[in-house]
Design a protein around this nucleic acid. Structure first.
Lengths: 251, 251
DNA sequence: CGCTGAATTGACTACCCTCAACATGAGTGG
DNA sequence: CCACTCATGTTGAGGGTAGTCAATTCAGCG
């Protein structure tokens, strides 16, 4: 495999998760992000429209609701949350997005974003101008198909969240969230049993429709029952099967 | 405007909601369904790939989860629900779809539908084979754009459902559902204050994460407070402002 | 060292679920 | 026409889960 990197750039720089000098072709995430199943020359054309900017710091906004929509963003490192503000003014977390996942798809419908996206920790993103992506999709059928699938995946995942919120007990909701993050970490070849939660208890509670007190109580309860070990934001899943049963709502 | 109908077909037949002999060009729903903002000749090309079949009877399946995905469907008349079956076997209603709305978008992600779609009453649909739509989208940029927007709208609507389920009291959930159906009826030039619910209390409860008893109690409570009038499935909204306040969660 | 914000824990309360009985209406068959 | 069933919806009583309010701990930071 050819190495297109200029000789002055050291490999360890390129491999840094926040580094801007990464192309879609050599990105570690390209099996779960956009370019999957594209030909090498098409990946290159995609890469040319992707813009990489300096990392977002924790709490910084990637975009805000009602901003004019013109790009979607792939998370390259870190983690973000999407929040929508209701008419009554209170926030609602509608999702968490980890590296390889794409945000901004809500903006197409009305040419303005309906959500705001905020960094939960230092995060870098790849900006993909949508009109460029649209043009390219007309020329590369595989890309059009892939983008359709990306949006469809977002739809199915949100339907799973709806199922989660509609049915389950507080314990099942928390268990499902942990399992979800575990699975997504695993997909990125990270540990499925041991990870750091990027979001606060407040964000978790907001997302799951629970108060932070309930979230906290459930963490301690799960720990007492030897299902997980909690140390602040660090989670160790000690009994994956038990956690799955709890998520399915076997009380 | 030309009339392409064969002379033997009477106008009142064509205007029947379940009639198969309707083209996208003269469909009453074409301002909210797919063809919006397409040129007249492009509408015709779209129309040629759309298949119209005999109406579904109440309880019949349009498609089932795990069926091979090959079409999306526009609801032309009636009403359907989308349900997903969890691993534990119980159903979850993930959405209701009224005329002009499109179902099946969840199927693209994995080439199989993740939901089943069931008719709530006698309903007719327009089947749009996806590979044909995909090809056409490559040739008609407006159609590609429109289909992206359609999927995006589905995403934003589901995020609203997530917000609804995550935050609100039982009363606010029911109120929001009623307001949602009211608004969608209004968009089709039907009454916003007076309509028939196509779904059962069981479906409402399942969708909103409530028991049917709670749904029933809330209907009677709203009626006692002169916000709505309920007679079986017929709803009259007598105080729209109050209903809006309740939906926003002002307790 | 004190301040601030996040997280935990406890006591009490309220909302919604569970279980149950009853009502209503459509369809069937005598 | 009435009696019967079955499905759907309504209403009531009681209990459990999660919310509210409050106090405390802890980490980070100037």
């Amino acid at each position: 495999m050819n190495n297109f990197q200029p000789p002055l750039i050291k490999t360890q720089d390129i491999n840094c998760a926040h580094d801007k000098r990464v192309s879609c072709g050599n990105c570690r995430l390209n099996t779960i992000c956009l370019p999957i199943s594209l030909h090498i020359e098409d990946i290159d054309r995609l890469n040319q429209i992707v813009q990489r900017s300096k990392p977002l710091q924790k709490g910084e906004y990637l975009y805000r609701a009602k901003d004019r929509f013109d790009s979607v963003f792939a998370i390259r490192s870190g983690a973000v949350k999407a929040v929508s503000i209701s008419e009554t003014g209170d926030e609602q977390v509608t999702g968490f997005y980890l590296p390889g996942e794409v945000v901004g798809l809500d903006g197409l419908a009305n040419d303005t974003y309906t959500n705001s996206v905020v960094a939960l920790e230092t995060s870098s993103v790849c900006e993909i101008p949508f009109n460029r992506l649209e043009e390219l999709s007309l020329q590369i059928p595989t890309l059009q198909r892939h983008f359709f699938q990306l949006m469809s995946r977002e739809i199915t995942q949100e339907q799973q969240v709806i199922t989660l919120l509609s049915k389950s007990s507080a314990e099942a909701r928390v268990a499902s969230l942990l399992l979800g993050i575990s699975a997504r970490n695993n997909r990125r070849n990270l540990s499925a049993n041991n990870f750091i939660l990027p979001m606060s208890r407040t964000d978790i509670g907001n997302f799951l429709g629970l108060t932070i007190e309930t979230v906290s109580r459930i963490f301690t309860r799960l720990q007492k029952n030897n299902v997980i070990a909690v140390d602040k934001k660090e989670i160790v899943i000690t009994d994956m099967d038990a956690l799955s049963l709890i998520a399915k709502g076997t009380d």
